[in-house]
């Protein structure tokens, strides 16, 4: 778990400085099906491979950003601020 993550603000830092915020998911609209909400609230893809994730730079700039990480190798391919 000591891999490096490039925070868009602070640069490359140890993963220990960050809080993991889970997979990036899109939130259903009110009025969408119960199934859509169930999937959003309770399930995860848990991808073995490249996955888009939320990260928060807890010990640094305290900003949320997103990262593309290979969960098998902990290689962080890209990081960016969400639009």
């Amino acid at each position: 778990m000591s891999f490096l993550l490039a925070c868009p603000e602070c640069g490359e830092r140890s993963a220990y400085e960050f809080r993991f915020g889970g997979e990036v998911k899109s939130r259903p609209q009110q009025g969408d099906s119960e199934e859509a909400w169930f999937q959003y609230i309770y399930t995860k893809t848990n991808e073995a491979g490249e996955q888009e994730e939320w990260w928060f730079h807890r010990n640094g700039c305290r900003k949320w950003f997103q990262a593309l990480r290979d969960t098998r190798t902990n290689t962080v391919i890209a990081t960016w601020y969400p639009e």
């Binding site: 939320w54 928060f56 807890r58 305290r62 900003k63 949320w64 601020y81 969400p82 639009e83």
Partner: peptide
Amino acid sequence: LDFVEQWLEWWLAG
């Protein structure tokens, strides 16, 4: 506190 601050920032992000 830490959690709430991060929670608010998260819903604000993007």
